[in-house]
Design a binder for these strands. Structure first.
Lengths: 215, 215
DNA sequence: AACCATATGCGCGATAATCGCGCAAGCTCT
DNA sequence: AGAGCTTGCGCGATTATCGCGCATATGGTT
């Protein structure tokens, strides 16, 4: 085990354990976690029990699952960046103007992570939450995070991620750097209407402009 | 340092470090974190560097701050419980029916943690995000999480948390246990209107009923 | 019902990772 | 420019971690 003195391997292992509770695997047993992480069963047990001790994980019989406390960590990020007080209202205002749900995403390595949503999706088709990840190359919001050249320009993808859905996105640029992206999506029929497009596109651009001052 | 063999103290310390990035303290230096956590500076440094190594924390000069990756952990909880696909649409539907923003909270020790919001607050007055915490005794949504006797009954608080704001909340009960609470709030003037109340209250109750089947 | 195979909980000694002292370098204020 | 404080980080002692291995629980098969 490579052990640079600057890295705490125990802590790193613990975070790997925490991370393996994903959307598909909510209730895990110690051996299951051990298999997923490649850690020794006894080590896994101790790390999971530590999480239980601190209240991040709950135990029912042999199954372990995350508690809402994990959201407090996310809250540290969201509140620190004033998502609730500043960003959310802006996103909501432009979303209402456009009549479509707006989402805000940031880059995390090779994926786009949703950090805020506004304008409720009436249909549960995609079901994204805060913390949901989507690929960068097949989604409008992901591509917007990458297009360093055409900063601020609108990007559109058509059914590349979800069949029949068109996504439009726009980078949020601060000091020449892309710091985030906002996007919206709708069924192709809806989005192809030129009138609607003419209404939605400026809203996205203005919203991105307004948000850029908050990053 | 009490060291039961079942608890990994290093991991526990690391999580304490992670937790000390809260809404008020976004950019922290190693000595600041050491002071807050009571840990040795060198230990703190190693734990923070581990977080940087794993991408949960970013370093700019001497300041460390959370990255969006921390939201991925929250996503594990939210997606696992189908917040995006099932809960959010229901919350949004009843919120739209009531014409007021609805929030969903769960208990975390002695506080209520917001886990979902629907219906955008047009005014940024409170600015709650996913992961925001509020006290249980002075908020309607917090009290609803506690009232084990009158399960499902509506609770109302008047200005006890935020002056001029009335909150109404209702427990989400599953198998006789309170698993969550939904609430809404509005300025007193608005909420005191009997007609509106007659409209909002059933929406909340029906929403709680609908959600109870998903927990 | 009894058996076997597999999965799981957990104690304990060896060992490698952590701890935290202490020095050197950087910063700030007078 | 100097003094006092703050911060970064190397290194040896020590302690918490590791993971083997046994005992128990589980569940499937004859």
């Amino acid at each position: 085990m490579a052990a640079p003195t600057d890295i705490s391997s125990t802590f790193a292992k613990g975070l790997v354990v925490l991370k393996c509770f994903d959307g598909d695997s909510t209730h895990l047993t110690v051996p299951e976690i051990a298999r997923r992480t490649g850690l020794d069963r006894a080590v896994t047990r101790r790390l999971v029990l530590t999480l239980v001790h601190l209240g991040y994980v709950a135990q029912e019989d042999r199954a372990f699952s995350l508690t809402p406390r994990i959201l407090v960590l996310a809250g540290g990020f969201l509140q620190g960046r004033r998502f609730g007080k500043l960003i959310q209202p802006i996103l909501a205002a432009y979303s209402a103007q456009a009549g479509l749900p707006f989402s805000l995403a940031m880059q995390d390595e090779s994926q786009a992570v949703y950090v805020a949503h506004a304008g409720d999706q009436d249909e549960p088709r995609l079901g994204f939450t805060v913390g949901s990840r989507v690929p960068m190359d097949t989604t409008a919001i992901g591509r917007a995070l990458l297009e360093t050249d055409s900063a601020g320009e609108l990007l559109e993808t058509d059914g590349t991620f979800e069949p029949g859905i068109i996504g439009i996105a726009c980078a949020v640029v601060r000091d020449g750097e892309i710091v985030a992206a906002i996007g919206t999506s709708a069924p192709r029929k809806l989005m192809q209407d030129p009138l609607r497009r003419a209404h939605v596109v400026p809203s996205l651009q203005n919203c991105a402009q307004a948000l850029s001052e908050l990053f």
